[in-house]
Amino acid sequence: MNVLVVNAGSSTLKYQLMDTKTGEILAKGSCERVGFSGGTFTHTAQGSPKVTDKVEFPDHKRAIEVVLADLEEHQVAIDGIGHRIVQGGWYFGDSALVDEDILAKIREVAPLAPLHNNPEADVIEYCLSSYPDLPNVTVFDTAFHFNMPEVARTYALPREVCDRLHIRKYGAHGTSYRFISRALAEMKHGAAERVVVCHIGSGASLAAIEHGACVDTTMGLTPLDGVMMGTRCGSIDPATVIYLQREGGYTFDEIDDMMNRQSGLLAVSGTTNDVRDIEEGVAAGDPNCTLAFDMFIYKIAAKVAEMACAMGGMDTLVFTAGIGEHAPALRAGVCDRLTWAGVELDHARNALRADGAWKLSRPDSPVAVYVIPTDEERMIADDVERIVSQSV
Protein backbone atom coordinates (compact mmCIF):
# COMPACT_ATOMS: atom_id res chain seq x y z
CA MET A 1 0.00 0.00 0.00
CA ASN A 2 1.38 3.41 -1.00
CA VAL A 3 0.74 5.72 1.95
CA LEU A 4 1.34 9.45 1.95
CA VAL A 5 2.38 10.50 5.46
CA VAL A 6 1.74 14.18 6.20
CA ASN A 7 3.11 16.11 9.18
CA ALA A 8 1.87 19.71 9.33
CA GLY A 9 3.66 21.86 11.90
CA SER A 10 3.01 25.45 12.83
CA SER A 11 4.95 26.81 9.83
CA THR A 12 6.00 23.67 7.95
CA LEU A 13 4.53 20.70 6.12
CA LYS A 14 6.66 17.60 5.76
CA TYR A 15 5.64 14.54 3.80
CA GLN A 16 6.81 11.08 2.82
CA LEU A 17 5.26 8.55 0.47
CA MET A 18 6.00 4.98 1.55
CA ASP A 19 5.31 1.53 0.15
CA THR A 20 4.28 -0.34 3.29
CA LYS A 21 5.09 -3.72 1.74
CA THR A 22 8.72 -2.95 0.93
CA GLY A 23 9.39 0.08 3.11
CA GLU A 24 10.63 1.96 0.03
CA ILE A 25 10.35 5.76 0.16
CA LEU A 26 8.82 6.75 -3.18
CA ALA A 27 8.77 10.50 -2.53
CA LYS A 28 9.52 12.94 0.24
CA GLY A 29 9.92 16.62 0.88
CA SER A 30 8.94 19.65 2.92
CA CYS A 31 7.25 23.02 2.61
CA GLU A 32 8.98 25.63 4.75
CA ARG A 33 7.83 29.03 6.03
CA VAL A 34 4.13 28.30 5.64
CA GLY A 35 2.23 31.48 6.49
CA PHE A 36 5.36 33.63 6.01
CA SER A 37 7.11 35.13 3.02
CA GLY A 38 10.11 33.44 1.46
CA GLY A 39 8.71 29.91 1.37
CA THR A 40 10.64 26.97 -0.09
CA PHE A 41 9.52 23.60 -1.42
CA THR A 42 12.12 20.83 -1.25
CA HIS A 43 11.05 17.63 -2.97
CA THR A 44 12.09 14.42 -4.70
CA ALA A 45 10.02 11.61 -6.21
CA GLN A 46 10.62 8.31 -8.00
CA GLY A 47 14.39 8.66 -7.61
CA SER A 48 14.59 12.14 -9.10
CA PRO A 49 17.24 14.56 -7.77
CA LYS A 50 16.24 16.63 -4.76
CA VAL A 51 15.05 20.06 -5.85
CA THR A 52 14.36 23.20 -3.83
CA ASP A 53 11.97 25.74 -5.34
CA LYS A 54 10.85 29.11 -4.07
CA VAL A 55 7.11 28.83 -3.45
CA GLU A 56 4.89 31.09 -1.37
CA PHE A 57 2.65 29.21 1.05
CA PRO A 58 0.00 31.55 2.51
CA ASP A 59 -1.48 28.61 4.43
CA HIS A 60 -1.26 24.84 4.85
CA LYS A 61 -3.96 24.16 2.26
CA ARG A 62 -1.74 25.72 -0.36
CA ALA A 63 1.18 23.65 0.88
CA ILE A 64 -0.62 20.31 0.54
CA GLU A 65 -1.99 21.44 -2.83
CA VAL A 66 1.58 21.95 -4.09
CA VAL A 67 2.68 18.58 -2.68
CA LEU A 68 -0.16 16.63 -4.27
CA ALA A 69 0.31 18.38 -7.61
CA ASP A 70 4.01 17.42 -7.58
CA LEU A 71 3.16 13.78 -6.84
CA GLU A 72 0.62 13.77 -9.68
CA GLU A 73 3.24 15.22 -12.02
CA HIS A 74 5.59 12.38 -11.12
CA GLN A 75 2.73 9.89 -11.58
CA VAL A 76 3.10 8.43 -8.09
CA ALA A 77 0.10 6.38 -6.99
CA ILE A 78 -1.40 7.10 -3.55
CA ASP A 79 -3.61 4.51 -1.84
CA GLY A 80 -4.16 6.33 1.45
CA ILE A 81 -3.08 9.35 3.47
CA GLY A 82 -1.90 9.32 7.07
CA HIS A 83 -1.94 12.51 9.12
CA ARG A 84 0.16 13.02 12.23
CA ILE A 85 -2.01 14.75 14.83
CA VAL A 86 -0.21 16.11 17.89
CA GLN A 87 -3.22 16.14 20.21
CA GLY A 88 -6.07 13.63 20.34
CA GLY A 89 -7.35 15.03 23.60
CA TRP A 90 -9.93 13.14 25.62
CA TYR A 91 -11.30 11.32 22.57
CA PHE A 92 -8.68 9.18 20.85
CA GLY A 93 -6.85 6.15 22.19
CA ASP A 94 -6.09 4.84 18.70
CA SER A 95 -5.75 5.99 15.12
CA ALA A 96 -8.98 6.63 13.24
CA LEU A 97 -10.42 6.74 9.74
CA VAL A 98 -11.43 10.34 9.11
CA ASP A 99 -15.02 11.45 8.77
CA GLU A 100 -16.73 14.73 9.64
CA ASP A 101 -17.09 13.74 13.30
CA ILE A 102 -13.39 12.90 13.63
CA LEU A 103 -12.44 16.18 11.98
CA ALA A 104 -14.72 18.15 14.30
CA LYS A 105 -13.15 16.52 17.36
CA ILE A 106 -9.63 17.34 16.15
CA ARG A 107 -10.65 20.99 16.04
CA GLU A 108 -12.45 20.73 19.38
CA VAL A 109 -9.30 19.62 21.19
CA ALA A 110 -7.10 22.11 19.29
CA PRO A 111 -6.79 24.52 22.27
CA LEU A 112 -4.40 21.94 23.74
CA ALA A 113 -2.17 22.22 20.63
CA PRO A 114 -3.42 25.16 18.54
CA LEU A 115 -0.28 25.54 16.44
CA HIS A 116 -0.49 21.93 15.24
CA ASN A 117 -4.05 20.58 15.28
CA ASN A 118 -5.65 23.39 13.30
CA PRO A 119 -3.11 23.31 10.43
CA GLU A 120 -3.45 19.54 10.15
CA ALA A 121 -7.24 19.80 10.19
CA ASP A 122 -6.97 22.28 7.30
CA VAL A 123 -4.80 19.78 5.40
CA ILE A 124 -7.29 16.98 6.03
CA GLU A 125 -10.15 19.12 4.74
CA TYR A 126 -8.25 19.79 1.53
CA CYS A 127 -7.41 16.11 1.03
CA LEU A 128 -11.01 15.04 1.63
CA SER A 129 -12.39 17.58 -0.81
CA SER A 130 -9.78 17.02 -3.52
CA TYR A 131 -9.51 13.23 -3.27
CA PRO A 132 -12.82 12.02 -1.79
CA ASP A 133 -12.13 8.40 -2.71
CA LEU A 134 -8.83 8.21 -0.83
CA PRO A 135 -8.99 7.04 2.81
CA ASN A 136 -7.52 9.52 5.30
CA VAL A 137 -6.34 8.22 8.66
CA THR A 138 -5.42 10.30 11.70
CA VAL A 139 -2.58 9.07 13.92
CA PHE A 140 -2.47 10.78 17.31
CA ASP A 141 0.73 11.40 19.26
CA THR A 142 -1.25 11.27 22.50
CA ALA A 143 -2.96 7.93 21.81
CA PHE A 144 -0.12 5.83 23.25
CA HIS A 145 -0.52 7.60 26.60
CA PHE A 146 -4.34 7.62 26.59
CA ASN A 147 -4.78 4.72 29.01
CA MET A 148 -1.84 5.32 31.32
CA PRO A 149 -2.72 4.64 34.97
CA GLU A 150 -4.95 7.15 36.70
CA VAL A 151 -2.29 7.75 39.35
CA ALA A 152 0.06 9.00 36.61
CA ARG A 153 -2.34 10.97 34.43
CA THR A 154 -4.32 12.82 37.13
CA TYR A 155 -3.51 16.32 38.35
CA ALA A 156 -4.13 17.25 41.98
CA LEU A 157 -6.55 20.03 41.09
CA PRO A 158 -10.27 20.24 41.98
CA ARG A 159 -12.00 17.35 40.25
CA GLU A 160 -14.78 19.57 38.90
CA VAL A 161 -12.22 21.81 37.20
CA CYS A 162 -10.34 18.86 35.69
CA ASP A 163 -13.54 17.22 34.45
CA ARG A 164 -14.99 20.39 32.96
CA LEU A 165 -11.81 21.51 31.20
CA HIS A 166 -10.43 18.02 30.45
CA ILE A 167 -7.23 18.67 32.40
CA ARG A 168 -4.93 15.65 32.65
CA LYS A 169 -1.53 14.47 31.52
CA TYR A 170 -1.75 13.79 27.78
CA GLY A 171 1.91 13.36 26.86
CA ALA A 172 3.40 13.54 23.38
CA HIS A 173 5.75 11.68 20.99
CA GLY A 174 3.50 8.63 21.35
CA THR A 175 3.95 7.55 17.74
CA SER A 176 7.70 7.45 18.27
CA TYR A 177 7.30 5.49 21.51
CA ARG A 178 5.08 2.92 19.78
CA PHE A 179 7.70 2.42 17.06
CA ILE A 180 10.53 2.06 19.58
CA SER A 181 8.49 -0.35 21.70
CA ARG A 182 7.75 -2.49 18.65
CA ALA A 183 11.34 -2.41 17.40
CA LEU A 184 12.72 -3.30 20.84
CA ALA A 185 10.30 -6.20 21.21
CA GLU A 186 11.51 -7.58 17.86
CA MET A 187 15.17 -7.11 18.82
CA LYS A 188 14.85 -8.74 22.26
CA HIS A 189 12.01 -11.15 21.47
CA GLY A 190 9.83 -9.56 24.14
CA ALA A 191 12.48 -9.78 26.87
CA ALA A 192 12.42 -6.02 27.58
CA GLU A 193 9.67 -5.64 30.16
CA ARG A 194 10.40 -2.37 31.97
CA VAL A 195 11.71 0.17 29.48
CA VAL A 196 12.52 3.86 29.77
CA VAL A 197 12.69 5.59 26.38
CA CYS A 198 14.36 9.00 26.05
CA HIS A 199 13.00 10.80 22.96
CA ILE A 200 15.47 13.67 22.92
CA GLY A 201 15.20 16.21 20.12
CA SER A 202 14.53 19.93 20.11
CA GLY A 203 11.36 18.83 21.86
CA ALA A 204 12.19 16.18 24.44
CA SER A 205 10.26 13.72 26.58
CA LEU A 206 10.63 10.36 28.30
CA ALA A 207 8.21 7.48 28.74
CA ALA A 208 7.96 4.49 31.04
CA ILE A 209 6.82 1.48 29.00
CA GLU A 210 5.94 -1.68 30.91
CA HIS A 211 5.15 -4.79 28.85
CA GLY A 212 4.53 -2.53 25.84
CA ALA A 213 2.09 -0.15 27.56
CA CYS A 214 2.73 3.41 28.73
CA VAL A 215 2.57 3.79 32.50
CA ASP A 216 3.93 7.36 32.69
CA THR A 217 5.51 10.07 30.58
CA THR A 218 7.11 13.45 31.21
CA MET A 219 5.11 15.81 29.01
CA GLY A 220 1.80 16.79 30.57
CA LEU A 221 -1.27 18.77 29.61
CA THR A 222 0.95 20.36 26.96
CA PRO A 223 4.42 19.62 25.55
CA LEU A 224 5.93 22.31 27.83
CA ASP A 225 6.22 19.97 30.82
CA GLY A 226 9.06 17.59 31.67
CA VAL A 227 12.75 18.01 30.83
CA MET A 228 14.21 21.30 29.64
CA MET A 229 14.39 21.44 25.85
CA GLY A 230 15.80 23.53 23.05
CA THR A 231 13.60 26.56 23.74
CA ARG A 232 11.14 25.22 26.37
CA CYS A 233 11.75 25.52 30.10
CA GLY A 234 10.29 22.15 31.08
CA SER A 235 8.99 21.55 34.59
CA ILE A 236 9.20 24.58 36.89
CA ASP A 237 7.25 25.81 39.90
CA PRO A 238 3.79 26.60 38.43
CA ALA A 239 3.62 29.70 40.63
CA THR A 240 6.35 31.17 38.40
CA VAL A 241 3.61 32.04 35.90
CA ILE A 242 1.67 33.95 38.56
CA TYR A 243 4.82 35.67 39.82
CA LEU A 244 5.87 36.79 36.34
CA GLN A 245 2.45 38.25 35.73
CA ARG A 246 2.06 39.94 39.10
CA GLU A 247 5.61 41.16 39.71
CA GLY A 248 7.02 41.30 36.19
CA GLY A 249 3.98 42.73 34.45
CA TYR A 250 4.06 40.09 31.72
CA THR A 251 0.87 39.08 29.94
CA PHE A 252 -0.18 35.45 29.62
CA ASP A 253 0.78 35.54 25.94
CA GLU A 254 4.22 36.93 26.75
CA ILE A 255 4.79 34.25 29.38
CA ASP A 256 3.62 31.56 26.98
CA ASP A 257 6.08 32.82 24.36
CA MET A 258 8.87 33.11 26.95
CA MET A 259 8.47 29.59 28.28
CA ASN A 260 7.96 27.91 24.91
CA ARG A 261 10.29 29.87 22.62
CA GLN A 262 12.83 31.79 24.71
CA SER A 263 13.77 29.33 27.46
CA GLY A 264 15.54 25.97 27.78
CA LEU A 265 19.01 25.53 26.28
CA LEU A 266 18.66 28.84 24.45
CA ALA A 267 18.07 30.79 27.64
CA VAL A 268 20.76 29.13 29.75
CA SER A 269 23.46 29.18 27.06
CA GLY A 270 22.44 32.69 26.04
CA THR A 271 23.31 31.95 22.41
CA THR A 272 21.78 28.79 20.94
CA ASN A 273 19.25 25.99 21.28
CA ASP A 274 21.38 23.60 19.18
CA VAL A 275 23.17 20.94 21.24
CA ARG A 276 25.95 20.74 18.65
CA ASP A 277 26.75 24.44 19.12
CA ILE A 278 26.50 24.06 22.88
CA GLU A 279 29.00 21.17 22.80
CA GLU A 280 31.37 23.41 20.83
CA GLY A 281 30.90 26.07 23.50
CA VAL A 282 31.69 23.54 26.22
CA ALA A 283 34.90 22.57 24.41
CA ALA A 284 35.83 26.25 24.16
CA GLY A 285 35.29 26.75 27.89
CA ASP A 286 32.09 28.80 27.69
CA PRO A 287 30.60 28.63 31.22
CA ASN A 288 27.03 29.28 30.05
CA CYS A 289 27.17 26.47 27.49
CA THR A 290 28.71 24.20 30.13
CA LEU A 291 25.87 24.98 32.54
CA ALA A 292 23.25 24.42 29.82
CA PHE A 293 24.75 21.05 28.84
CA ASP A 294 25.14 19.90 32.45
CA MET A 295 21.57 20.96 33.27
CA PHE A 296 20.23 19.10 30.23
CA ILE A 297 22.00 15.90 31.30
CA TYR A 298 20.90 16.28 34.91
CA LYS A 299 17.25 16.90 34.03
CA ILE A 300 17.13 13.88 31.69
CA ALA A 301 18.81 11.56 34.21
CA ALA A 302 16.43 12.71 36.96
CA LYS A 303 13.44 11.98 34.74
CA VAL A 304 14.84 8.54 33.85
CA ALA A 305 14.78 7.77 37.58
CA GLU A 306 11.22 9.08 37.83
CA MET A 307 10.07 6.92 34.92
CA ALA A 308 11.82 3.86 36.41
CA CYS A 309 10.00 4.51 39.67
CA ALA A 310 6.68 4.18 37.81
CA MET A 311 7.61 0.57 36.99
CA GLY A 312 9.50 -0.38 40.15
CA GLY A 313 12.77 -0.36 38.22
CA MET A 314 13.96 -0.76 34.64
CA ASP A 315 15.73 -3.39 32.59
CA THR A 316 16.22 -1.33 29.42
CA LEU A 317 17.10 2.29 28.60
CA VAL A 318 16.70 3.58 25.04
CA PHE A 319 17.87 6.83 23.43
CA THR A 320 16.14 8.03 20.26
CA ALA A 321 15.33 11.13 18.14
CA GLY A 322 17.82 13.67 16.76
CA ILE A 323 19.86 14.41 19.89
CA GLY A 324 19.36 11.02 21.50
CA GLU A 325 20.66 9.28 18.39
CA HIS A 326 23.55 11.62 17.58
CA ALA A 327 24.95 13.08 20.83
CA PRO A 328 27.23 10.49 22.49
CA ALA A 329 28.48 12.95 25.11
CA LEU A 330 24.95 13.56 26.29
CA ARG A 331 24.20 9.82 26.44
CA ALA A 332 27.40 9.27 28.41
CA GLY A 333 26.53 12.03 30.84
CA VAL A 334 23.05 10.65 31.46
CA CYS A 335 24.23 7.06 31.88
CA ASP A 336 27.10 8.00 34.17
CA ARG A 337 24.58 9.64 36.50
CA LEU A 338 22.61 6.38 36.59
CA THR A 339 25.26 3.85 37.59
CA TRP A 340 23.46 3.54 40.95
CA ALA A 341 20.43 2.23 39.01
CA GLY A 342 22.42 -0.52 37.25
CA VAL A 343 23.36 1.40 34.09
CA GLU A 344 26.87 0.44 32.99
CA LEU A 345 27.82 2.16 29.74
CA ASP A 346 30.45 0.85 27.32
CA HIS A 347 31.98 4.23 26.46
CA ALA A 348 33.79 2.92 23.38
CA ARG A 349 30.57 1.54 21.89
CA ASN A 350 28.72 4.71 22.83
CA ALA A 351 31.17 6.73 20.75
CA LEU A 352 30.26 4.78 17.61
CA ARG A 353 28.09 6.36 14.93
CA ALA A 354 26.55 3.18 13.59
CA ASP A 355 23.61 2.83 11.24
CA GLY A 356 20.47 1.38 12.74
CA ALA A 357 20.12 0.22 16.33
CA TRP A 358 23.05 -0.72 18.54
CA LYS A 359 23.71 -1.67 22.14
CA LEU A 360 25.75 0.73 24.30
CA SER A 361 25.92 -1.06 27.63
CA ARG A 362 28.56 -3.43 28.94
CA PRO A 363 27.78 -7.16 28.65
CA ASP A 364 27.32 -7.42 32.42
CA SER A 365 25.20 -4.28 32.81
CA PRO A 366 21.96 -4.99 34.74
CA VAL A 367 20.26 -2.40 32.53
CA ALA A 368 20.64 -2.80 28.76
CA VAL A 369 21.20 0.51 26.96
CA TYR A 370 20.39 1.02 23.27
CA VAL A 371 20.24 3.65 20.58
CA ILE A 372 17.26 2.91 18.33
CA PRO A 373 16.52 5.36 15.50
CA THR A 374 12.86 6.24 15.52
CA ASP A 375 10.65 6.09 12.43
CA GLU A 376 7.35 7.79 13.08
CA GLU A 377 6.54 7.85 9.37
CA ARG A 378 6.74 4.06 9.21
CA MET A 379 4.47 3.78 12.24
CA ILE A 380 1.92 6.14 10.66
CA ALA A 381 2.02 4.32 7.32
CA ASP A 382 1.48 0.96 9.05
CA ASP A 383 -1.44 2.44 10.97
CA VAL A 384 -3.06 3.60 7.76
CA GLU A 385 -2.80 0.12 6.31
CA ARG A 386 -4.20 -1.41 9.54
CA ILE A 387 -7.11 1.00 9.91
CA VAL A 388 -8.06 0.85 6.23
CA SER A 389 -8.02 -2.97 6.23
CA GLN A 390 -10.25 -3.01 9.31
CA SER A 391 -12.78 -0.72 7.61
CA VAL A 392 -13.17 -2.87 4.50
Score class of each variant (00 low, 15 high):
219 M>E: 07
77 A>S: 15
156 A>T: 15
265 L>N: 03
30 S>W: 04
56 E>I: 02
222 T>M: 07
207 A>K: 04
167 I>A: 03
335 C>I: 06
357 A>N: 11
374 T>S: 10
354 A>V: 06
325 E>N: 06
290 T>Y: 04
386 R>M: 13
193 E>D: 12
72 E>G: 10
386 R>C: 07
105 K>S: 04
253 D>R: 00
353 R>L: 01
159 R>L: 14
46 Q>K: 14
122 D>N: 10
273 N>K: 12
215 V>E: 05
292 A>Q: 00
272 T>M: 03
5 V>F: 06
12 T>P: 02
284 A>N: 14
84 R>H: 05
158 P>Y: 14
242 I>N: 05
111 P>K: 11
391 S>I: 01
105 K>T: 08
348 A>L: 08
188 K>N: 13
71 L>G: 03
83 H>G: 03
330 L>R: 05
352 L>I: 01
285 G>M: 13
29 G>Q: 13
120 E>H: 04
357 A>R: 12
288 N>V: 01
262 Q>R: 15
213 A>Y: 14
182 R>C: 02
341 A>F: 01
253 D>P: 00
338 L>S: 01
69 A>H: 09
276 R>Q: 10
8 A>I: 05
265 L>C: 02
44 T>Y: 12
215 V>K: 10
99 D>G: 11
288 N>I: 00
188 K>Y: 11
334 V>A: 06
23 G>E: 11
194 R>Q: 15
209 I>A: 08
335 C>G: 01
318 V>T: 11
391 S>R: 11
41 F>I: 09
153 R>H: 12
145 H>V: 07
306 E>A: 15
26 L>P: 03
240 T>E: 05
339 T>G: 04
349 R>P: 04
10 S>F: 09
276 R>K: 08
40 T>N: 13
100 E>V: 01
142 T>Y: 02
116 H>D: 10
316 T>M: 07
183 A>Y: 00
234 G>P: 03
334 V>D: 01
340 W>N: 09
71 L>T: 09
113 A>R: 12
15 Y>F: 15
233 C>K: 00
141 D>Q: 03
291 L>H: 02
51 V>M: 11
354 A>R: 06
146 F>W: 07
68 L>P: 00
331 R>T: 08
88 G>L: 12
334 V>T: 01
25 I>E: 11
370 Y>V: 02
26 L>H: 05
112 L>N: 03
306 E>W: 04
132 P>K: 14
356 G>I: 06
4 L>P: 08
328 P>H: 08
164 R>L: 10
265 L>P: 02
14 K>A: 14
69 A>I: 03
63 A>I: 07
346 D>P: 07
164 R>N: 08
114 P>K: 13
261 R>N: 12
191 A>M: 13
259 M>S: 03
